[in-house]
Simulated assay, not measured.
Amino acid sequence: MNRMHNTVALVTGAAGGMGRAHCRRLAEEGADIIALDIEAAAAELAETAREVETTGRLCVTGVADVRDQASMDAAVADGVAALGRLDVIVANAGIYSDLGLSWELSDQAWQRTIDINLTGMWHTVRAAVAALSDGGSVVIVSSTNGIVGAAAAAPDTARKHAVVGLARTQAHQLGPRGLRGNTGRPG
């Protein structure tokens, strides 16, 4: 198909699951990939790179924690320098854990989910948006929890509603620059 021919896409949470699937699909469509994930997932991130490269596309990997703006800034800068441009940001990194009744969650469980799944999305866009090429796109991964919620996933549901609002705001802010902002809602 090659709808993404000669583009570069940045994907966070790229070591496995949906992140790896996003990388593979974008590469199948013709994009080179900047794949980022945490250090603990380095072996899986290398596997993502191998899968991308089987499509004939390039894959630059980087270690970054979306909770840490400085590590995101450095990893994005390195990836853009290596591939020469950036056309798509896929803010995908997230966790789905600490399920249960919202009033029984610990402060640490709540904050960890918000720090990774919401603040991490903001850090990703913040680190990369200045590098976006004309006509570029920001995609923040949410889910149906961002629309209807889930009984046992209070921090995840709260963050997904929040990232939908963040993406809508960014669409308004990016539009005058000729850029798009959207959410993807798997599930």
Rank of each mutant, 00 (worst) to 15 (best):
A64L: 02
V60Y: 04
G175N: 13
S142R: 02
A31N: 08
E39V: 10
C23H: 08
T124L: 07
Q69H: 09
S133V: 01
N6M: 06
N2G: 06
N145R: 07
A27D: 12
S102M: 11
V63T: 15
A27W: 11
V139S: 02
Q170D: 09
V8R: 06
L58G: 01
A150P: 00
T7C: 03
T55F: 06
A152Q: 10
R67G: 01
L10N: 11
V66K: 04
A46V: 07
G120A: 09
S137T: 14
T48F: 00
G79I: 10
D65W: 06
A41L: 13
S143P: 04
H123R: 15
V163K: 04
A151G: 02
S142T: 12
T55V: 08
A154T: 02
Q170H: 07
L101C: 09
N6P: 02
L10I: 13
V129K: 07
A152G: 03
G135V: 05
D107T: 14
T61P: 06
T48C: 00
D73W: 04
R180P: 06
L10D: 07
Q111T: 14
S102R: 03
A152F: 08
T124C: 07
P176Q: 12
V141W: 00
L118A: 01
G62S: 03
G135C: 06
A93R: 03
L179A: 09
W110C: 02
G149I: 04
I34S: 07
L101Y: 15
M121G: 04
L179Q: 12
Q108D: 10
V139E: 01
I140D: 00
N117H: 01
V163M: 12
M4E: 06
A46Y: 02
D134F: 03
L105P: 10
A27P: 15
V141H: 01
D98S: 15
N6W: 02
A43N: 14
I140L: 08
Y96K: 07
V138D: 00
T157G: 03
W103F: 12
A167L: 12
G135P: 05
D37R: 11
E47Q: 13
T12Q: 06
A75F: 13
K160A: 03
I89A: 13
A167R: 09
M72L: 15
L132M: 04
G16Q: 14
I34K: 05
R85A: 15
P176S: 11
S71K: 08
Q170E: 11
R20W: 00
A77L: 10
P176L: 10
T157W: 02
L101E: 15
G100V: 10
A158V: 05
I147F: 05
G165P: 05
V88H: 12
K160E: 10
N6A: 11
M121Q: 14
G56I: 06
A158E: 01
A64T: 01
V90K: 05
A75K: 10
A21E: 14
A35M: 14
T54S: 11
G84E: 14
L101D: 15
E29T: 09
R85K: 14
W122F: 15
H5V: 05
I147K: 06
A42F: 08
L179P: 11
E53P: 03
A152D: 13
I147R: 09
V11Y: 02
I95M: 15
V90N: 09
G149Y: 04
D134I: 03
A93S: 12
T7W: 00
L99E: 13
I89Y: 11
L45E: 00
N182E: 00
V141E: 00
C59R: 03
V129S: 05
